[in-house]
Design a protein around this nucleic acid. Sequence first.
DNA 1: GGAAAAATCGAAATGATTTCCATTTAGTCC
DNA 2: GGACTAAATGGAAATCATTTCGATTTTTCC
Lengths: 155, 155
Amino acid sequence: MLHDYPLMLKDLRLKVTPKRLAILDFLARTGTYVSPEEVRQNLREQFASIGLPTVYRNLDELASGGIVSKIIHPNRQLYYYFCPNSNHHHHFICLSCRTVTDLHICAVKGLEEEINDQVGGKVMSHILQVNGLCGICCAKDTVSGNNFSKKGEQL
Amino acid sequence: MLHDYPLMLKDLRLKVTPKRLAILDFLARTGTYVSPEEVRQNLREQFASIGLPTVYRNLDELASGGIVSKIIHPNRQLYYYFCPNSNHHHHFICLSCRTVTDLHICAVKGLEEEINDQVGGKVMSHILQVNGLCGICCAKDTVSGNNFSKKGEQL
DNA sequence: GGAAAAATCGAAATGATTTCCATTTAGTCC
DNA sequence: GGACTAAATGGAAATCATTTCGATTTTTCC
């Protein structure tokens, strides 16, 4: 699937800058979720200077615009995943190889009804993300490579 | 409902210390989710010295033991909520008054099936939390008092 | 090509959470 | 009740992802 990055950016009223394009391109090529620091590492190959604030700002803007998704890792750091699918859905993330699988059931509908009945409140946002090992990593049975921080799982 | 804190702690093989009891008591009395810093503020009234590491360590141990729940706020800080209910369930949290409502539907069952079919992977953990305004705060229609950090919502 | 708005940079600040290690305390066994 | 051991605690300092700041550069649009 090809993406027209300049058009995507214009739709979000973001200016089309070389760094934005490179960030999008990197995210799309990688196909897994990545950390802001990893994005910067990669952009360094193309740009003499690339500030971390620029990376953070852009990832955040792209996430607000719905082109990328934020992944909240059990280590509580943020990762980003190229996911221009605008239908409401949730993610299954592999803690080992970092692949993301889109899930098509929205599990929150029933909960919203329960909340309406019980609390009469208003739902403003929700987090739903399923963490685990994908089939391939599960078969390998080794949590290899992409370990994250030394801190234990926290969520 | 009365709670036997010393017994709860013994069940978790944690020593019964005055600070642990005070933390549990504070959480239970408060009835809303609170930040580690707020716990420390409160314990200061009872103890001449109380270190922040102690508070963090204890909250984390109690969460691991299932006596309190971690709340992951949209501002990405951790809050804790006294919730010794060991049945699997999820939470609706009010962003204004910080009340928590236990939800009785587990929304993740269906997703796990989908994951098994699609990915063949193994689910290790999930986050599901619904954020909003409870009925009372909704009626007031003002997001009063308990604002959190100045940073915008992030999740 | 020039002006206005947006984007970017580097350096420094922020701030929640942890680490370290010396000291104290709870649990246990006589 | 004292002594011992493992666990808990405190204070200060470190960590480290993420933001802020103010000055400079780019993009966009006419």
